[in-house]
Protein backbone atom coordinates (compact mmCIF):
# COMPACT_ATOMS: atom_id res chain seq x y z
CA UNK A 1 0.00 0.00 0.00
CA UNK A 2 1.23 3.47 -0.85
CA UNK A 3 0.88 6.24 1.70
CA UNK A 4 1.36 9.97 1.45
CA UNK A 5 3.36 11.52 4.27
CA UNK A 6 2.89 15.26 4.56
CA UNK A 7 5.02 17.43 6.78
CA UNK A 8 4.04 21.03 7.40
CA UNK A 9 5.64 23.48 9.79
CA UNK A 10 8.26 26.11 10.39
CA UNK A 11 11.42 25.53 8.39
CA UNK A 12 14.47 24.33 10.34
CA UNK A 13 17.56 22.20 9.89
CA UNK A 14 17.11 18.47 9.60
CA UNK A 15 13.39 17.98 8.95
CA UNK A 16 13.89 15.76 5.92
CA UNK A 17 16.59 13.80 7.77
CA UNK A 18 14.38 13.19 10.80
CA UNK A 19 11.35 12.11 8.84
CA UNK A 20 13.24 9.90 6.43
CA UNK A 21 15.24 8.20 9.18
CA UNK A 22 11.97 7.44 10.95
CA UNK A 23 10.76 5.87 7.68
CA UNK A 24 13.95 3.82 7.42
CA UNK A 25 13.62 2.68 11.01
CA UNK A 26 10.24 1.08 10.23
CA UNK A 27 11.28 -0.21 6.80
CA UNK A 28 9.11 2.24 4.88
CA UNK A 29 10.46 2.96 1.42
CA UNK A 30 10.32 6.58 0.28
CA UNK A 31 9.53 6.64 -3.45
CA UNK A 32 9.25 10.34 -4.20
CA UNK A 33 9.80 13.57 -2.31
CA UNK A 34 8.68 17.09 -3.13
CA UNK A 35 9.21 19.98 -0.84
CA UNK A 36 8.82 23.69 -0.91
CA UNK A 37 9.54 26.52 1.46
CA UNK A 38 7.11 29.41 1.23
CA UNK A 39 8.34 32.36 3.31
CA UNK A 40 9.45 30.33 6.31
CA UNK A 41 6.76 27.65 6.10
CA UNK A 42 8.03 24.25 5.15
CA UNK A 43 5.83 21.81 3.25
CA UNK A 44 7.10 18.39 2.27
CA UNK A 45 5.25 15.56 0.63
CA UNK A 46 6.67 12.05 0.53
CA UNK A 47 5.14 9.25 -1.47
CA UNK A 48 6.03 6.07 0.36
CA UNK A 49 5.50 2.35 0.14
CA UNK A 50 4.36 0.94 3.47
CA UNK A 51 3.71 -2.64 2.35
CA UNK A 52 6.86 -3.91 4.09
CA UNK A 53 6.51 -1.69 7.13
CA UNK A 54 7.86 -3.47 10.22
CA UNK A 55 4.99 -2.28 12.42
CA UNK A 56 1.27 -1.92 11.78
CA UNK A 57 0.12 1.04 9.72
CA UNK A 58 -1.64 2.53 12.77
CA UNK A 59 1.50 2.38 14.83
CA UNK A 60 3.57 3.95 12.05
CA UNK A 61 1.04 6.82 11.82
CA UNK A 62 1.29 7.32 15.56
CA UNK A 63 5.09 7.30 15.54
CA UNK A 64 5.06 9.92 12.79
CA UNK A 65 2.53 12.06 14.64
CA UNK A 66 4.67 11.88 17.80
CA UNK A 67 7.77 12.84 15.81
CA UNK A 68 5.76 15.79 14.51
CA UNK A 69 4.71 16.89 17.98
CA UNK A 70 8.28 16.71 19.29
CA UNK A 71 9.48 18.96 16.50
CA UNK A 72 6.52 21.30 16.28
CA UNK A 73 5.53 20.00 12.87
CA UNK A 74 2.24 18.71 11.61
CA UNK A 75 2.83 15.26 10.12
CA UNK A 76 0.06 13.23 8.49
CA UNK A 77 0.30 9.74 7.03
CA UNK A 78 -2.66 8.95 4.81
CA UNK A 79 -3.53 6.31 2.24
CA UNK A 80 -2.93 7.72 -1.25
CA UNK A 81 -6.47 6.75 -2.31
CA UNK A 82 -8.02 9.64 -0.43
CA UNK A 83 -6.12 12.11 -2.60
CA UNK A 84 -6.60 10.17 -5.80
CA UNK A 85 -10.33 9.92 -5.32
CA UNK A 86 -10.77 13.54 -4.35
CA UNK A 87 -8.67 15.12 -7.06
CA UNK A 88 -8.74 12.73 -10.01
CA UNK A 89 -11.72 11.79 -12.08
Amino acid sequence: MRAVITVIGKDMVGILAKVSSCCAEYNVNVCEVTQSVLQDMFAMIMMSDVSNCSVSFDEFCEQMATLGKENNLSIHVMHEDIFNSMHRI
Binding site: V4, T6, I8, T34, S36, A43, I45, M47, E80, I82, F83, N84, M86, H87
Partner: peptide, 9 residues
Protein backbone atom coordinates in the same frame (compact mmCIF):
# COMPACT_ATOMS: atom_id res chain seq x y z
CA UNK B 1 -0.13 13.92 -6.99
CA UNK B 2 -0.16 17.68 -7.06
CA UNK B 3 1.20 19.27 -3.87
CA UNK B 4 -1.57 21.87 -3.85
CA UNK B 5 -4.23 19.15 -4.02
CA UNK B 6 -2.71 17.21 -1.14
CA UNK B 7 -2.48 20.28 1.04
CA UNK B 8 -6.06 21.24 0.12
CA UNK B 9 -7.36 17.88 1.34
Amino acid sequence: LNVGDILET
